[in-house]
């Protein structure tokens, strides 16, 4: 299993956290021409500008898909993931309207549980219960703290 990147969007639809992981060194050959939000081979070298564009594109995609799923399947239906030839996108929405998105390789099974774990064990513990982190995370303020970053990195690397 390879995890390419991870994004958090707050209830104001702002991307308040994004993080990419270097792919294992071996297989950089296959990704040559792909869609707008590309798995890491390229996004490692992407500039800050285009990575914020990536986040916007991803949010647009999941937001539309989620609404479409609800229209088609009723309000109780949930959009969980989609996959392309290059990657699989996993989506998890909390009751507090926080949206977590993770991009992995295509063979990965459901990461819903993983995203839920990130939410309860890392987000709630190190961001929500962090006295030095504000209630609203405008511009990602307070999210990128050392404990959250370290916890997330350890957790994700443990999965890979």
């Amino acid at each position: 299993m390879a995890i390419y990147s991870f994004y958090i969007f707050d209830r104001h639809t702002e991307c308040i956290y994004s993080r990419t992981w270097l792919p294992p060194p071996a297989p950089p050959s296959q990704s040559s021409a792909d869609g707008p939000h590309i798995p890491p081979p390229q996004s490692q070298t992407l500039s800050a500008k285009s990575s914020s564009d990536n986040a916007k594109l991803i949010f647009g995609t999941v937001f539309s898909l989620r609404n479409m799923v609800r229209k088609l399947g009723g309000d109780d239906d949930a959009f969980i993931s989609f996959r392309t030839a290059q990657y699989k996108l996993h989506y998890y929405e909390t009751a507090s309207n926080l949206r977590l998105v993770m991009l992995t390789d295509t063979s990965t099974l459901s990461m819903r549980n993983v995203l839920h774990q990130i939410y309860i064990n890392l987000w709630v513990e190190y961001v929500v219960k962090n006295p030095l982190s504000p209630v609203e995370h405008k511009g990602g303020e307070g999210v990128r703290n050392e404990m959250f970053e370290m916890g997330l990195d350890q957790f994700v690397r443990g999965l890979m």
């Binding site: 190190y126 030095l132 703290n145």
Partner: peptide
Amino acid sequence: RMSTEPGG
């Protein structure tokens, strides 16, 4: 659980 970004 107190933590900030590096240099915070």
